[in-house]
Amino acid sequence: MREMIVNELTQATQELVREFARFLPRLMVMLIVVLVGWVIAYVVKWILRSFLRLIKFDKLSEGAGATQLLNKAALPSSTELVSRFAFWTAWLGFILVGVSALGILGMQEYVTRFFVFLPRLLVALIFLFIGLLAASFFSRAALLWAVNTNMPSPRLLSSAARVLITVFTASAVFEELGLADSTMLLAFAIVLGAVMLGLAIAFGLGGQDLARRFLEARFAPEKKEGQEREDELSPL
């Protein structure tokens, strides 16, 4: 009995040692892959950052209004953000390759899924970036237009433009990521419908005078009876 227990323990220990001996090289491979991956990812980050600085990407980003967005979100500069994103994407890829080298059952499938998902993630992030830039640009354009044409509530108009574009961007991003397609579509339709209805009611009820003034100025600029016309100044 005692011998049997000793034998079993010995066999189990030997089995464990064999398993560990088989696992150890894989673990080392994984660590090497992760380490080499870190170095490669770091080099990629460094090259990308240098390239972006060379082409003055931060200045381009400032001009497009992206820098203000990043500042508002307490994020680093555009160059730093893109470089860091490239670093983490590359390193995460290496980590997953390393983990798959461990030979853990089912892990391979997750790694494959990640690499299939990666391009969609990239596209979704590009959508998000462009969408937020467009929201910032067009909301500012609406604000300036409203101020320079003496429209009432310029900031309301500007915010409406920003919300509409942001909602549209969010729906495009979720669509690209394939996250809860039908729920997001439904939510988007409800939000857009609500915004449109709200605007229609707001403009319909609150903007009657504005619409009348606008149409009068546009199509019937002649002076009214008894009203003296002011002299216009030419700026140039």
Partner: peptide, 16 residues
């Protein structure tokens, strides 16, 4: 010059 925002927006913002 520094294009802190869109250059056209800089010019428009000077009008008021």
């Amino acid at each position: 010059h520094k294009a802190v925002i869109s250059r056209d927006h800089v010019v428009q913002a000077l009008a008021p």
